[in-house]
Computed example of a mutant assay.
Amino acid sequence: MKYTVTLDRDEDGMWVVECPTIPGCVSQGKNEEEALENIKEAIQLCLEVRAEKGLPVTVETREIEVTV
């Protein structure tokens, strides 16, 4: 399956990646490539745990641009 992730650089230079449709599914890496590989593993593990606990696999999210 395909999941949308967000990728941000933190103040220490690490790349933080999150899968918004899976609550709590976050990982990081020293570079973008590492972070993206790490989130793949995190997604698999999060999905397994959610299934074991009988939780919904994903939650509904939407992206909306806001101008300020």
Rank of each mutant, 00 (worst) to 15 (best):
S27G: 10
A51H: 06
P23C: 00
V49K: 00
D10W: 15
E32W: 02
T58P: 01
P20S: 01
V16C: 07
M1C: 04
E11L: 03
K53H: 12
D12T: 06
P56H: 08
V57I: 09
M1I: 08
T58R: 00
N31Q: 07
E37P: 01
T21F: 03
G13S: 13
P20D: 01
W15I: 15
T6L: 09
E32H: 05
E11A: 06
V57T: 07
A35I: 09
P20T: 01
D8N: 12
L47K: 00
L55H: 13
N31Y: 03
L45Q: 07
T4G: 05
C46K: 07
K40W: 07
T58S: 14
E60H: 05
L45P: 03
E41L: 10
D8Y: 14
R62F: 03
L47F: 01
T6N: 09
V49Y: 03
N31S: 14
Q28V: 06
E65V: 08
V17H: 08
V16N: 04
A35M: 06
I39E: 13
T4N: 14
V59W: 00
K30I: 12
R9I: 14
I64K: 04
L55T: 03
M14S: 09
Q28W: 15
V5D: 03
E34Y: 01
L7P: 00
E65L: 04
N31W: 03
R50E: 11
C46R: 10
V57Q: 13
E48I: 05
V26D: 02
G54S: 10
V59F: 02
M1S: 12
K40E: 15
R50Y: 14
D12S: 09
G29N: 08
I64A: 10
S27Y: 08
C19T: 09
T61W: 03
E52Q: 13
V17M: 05
V17E: 05
G29L: 05
E37W: 08
W15E: 00
D10H: 11
R50C: 10
G24S: 11
L7W: 00
S27R: 06
E18F: 08
T58D: 07
D8M: 11
N31L: 05
P20W: 06
C46H: 15
T6R: 02
E32K: 14
T4D: 13
I64G: 00
